[in-house]
Simulated assay, not measured.
Amino acid sequence: MSLGAWSFSHHSRDDGAVYSNKFSVNNAAILNFHVVQWADGSSWSSSEVGYLLVNKNYLGEVFAVYGRYTDENRDFQIKAPGFGEYQVMVLNLNDYTISGNGYVTF
């Protein structure tokens, strides 16, 4: 079951962060991230994208994913520290535009 999801298209570093919808976590939990990302305008560029778990009282560390993932997800995990309502913050760490999407599950 997807908790939170996001998508972005032709997103530049200057556009700021992209956020998922808000989702609730009942206790400390390991969250599974499933992401797809690519650089616009080039089939060979491997983009670097930062993913953070955030809420009004918590700003997680950036989990940087480097690569081009279009035909399959790149999966990783981030621990939610405890009960609360969270969002995923997505940051473009490149000097060019990127596109992608993703979602979080338990």
Results as ranks from 00 to 15, higher is better:
Met1Gln: 09
Gly67Asn: 09
Phe76Ser: 06
Lys22Ile: 03
Gly50Cys: 12
Lys56Val: 11
Ser45Met: 04
Lys56Ile: 13
Ala28Tyr: 03
Tyr19His: 07
Thr70Glu: 09
Ser2Tyr: 11
Arg74Cys: 05
Gly100Ile: 01
Lys79Thr: 11
Gly102Ser: 06
Ile98Ala: 05
Ser43Thr: 04
Gln87Met: 14
Trp38Leu: 14
Thr105Phe: 07
Ser9Gly: 10
Val65Trp: 00
Tyr19Met: 08
His10Arg: 13
Gln77Ile: 05
Tyr96Gly: 07
Gly82Val: 07
Val62Met: 08
Tyr19Arg: 10
Val25Ala: 14
Lys22Phe: 01
Glu61Met: 02
Thr97Arg: 05
Asp75Asn: 15
Phe33Met: 08
Met1His: 11
Ser43Gly: 02
Leu31Asp: 10
Val62Arg: 02
Ala28Phe: 02
Ser43Asn: 04
Ala80Phe: 11
Asn57Cys: 10
Ser7Phe: 13
Thr97Asn: 10
Ser47Leu: 00
Phe106Trp: 13
Asn57Thr: 14
Glu48Leu: 11
Val88Arg: 04
Asn21Asp: 14
Ser24Gly: 05
Val65Thr: 10
Ser20Leu: 12
Gly41Ile: 02
Trp38Tyr: 13
Phe8Asn: 13
Ser24Ala: 08
Ser9Cys: 06
Phe76Thr: 03
Leu53Thr: 00
Tyr58Asn: 04
Asn55Pro: 02
Leu53Ala: 04
Gly100Cys: 08
Val104Ala: 03
Tyr58His: 13
Val49Glu: 00
Tyr86Ile: 01
Gly102Val: 02
Val90Cys: 04
Asn92Gln: 01
Trp38Cys: 07
Ser99Ala: 12
Asn26His: 05
Lys79Val: 13
Asp71Leu: 11
Leu53Trp: 01
Asp40Ile: 02
Trp6Tyr: 15
Asp15Val: 08
Tyr96Pro: 12
Leu91Ile: 15
Gly67Lys: 13
Phe8Tyr: 15
His34Asn: 12
Phe23Asp: 03
Ala5Leu: 09
Ile78Asp: 02
Phe23Pro: 00
Thr70Met: 05
Tyr19Leu: 15
Gly50Glu: 10
Ser47Thr: 02
Gly60Tyr: 11
His10Met: 04
Phe106Asp: 14
Val25Gly: 04
Gly102Thr: 06
Val54Arg: 08
Asp40Ser: 10
Ile78Tyr: 14
Leu31Ser: 05
Leu93Asp: 00
Leu91Tyr: 08
Asp75Phe: 01
Val65Glu: 00
Leu53Gly: 00
Leu52His: 06
Trp6Ala: 02
Gly4Asp: 06
Tyr66Arg: 07
Gly82Thr: 12
Ser9Met: 04
Tyr58Ala: 08
Gly100Leu: 00
Asn55Leu: 03
Gln37Phe: 03
Ser99Phe: 05
Gly50Pro: 07
Gly16His: 09
Ala39Val: 01
Val54Thr: 15
Asn21Met: 05
Ala39Leu: 00
Tyr86Arg: 06
Tyr51Trp: 07
Tyr103Leu: 12
Tyr19Lys: 03
Trp44Glu: 00
Ser24Glu: 03
Asp15Met: 11
Asn21Thr: 15
Arg68Gln: 06
Lys56Ser: 13
Asp71Ile: 06
Phe83Val: 11
Gln87Ile: 13
Ser9Thr: 06
Gly82Cys: 09
Gly60Val: 01
Val54His: 09
Ser42Arg: 07
Leu3Cys: 06
Asp95Val: 06
Thr70Ser: 09
Asn27Met: 10
Asn32Glu: 15
His34Glu: 11
Ala5Lys: 09
Val18Phe: 01
Ser24Asp: 13
Asp71Val: 06
Val35Leu: 03
Gly100Tyr: 08
Asp71Ser: 15
Leu91Lys: 09
Phe63Asn: 04
Gly67Thr: 04
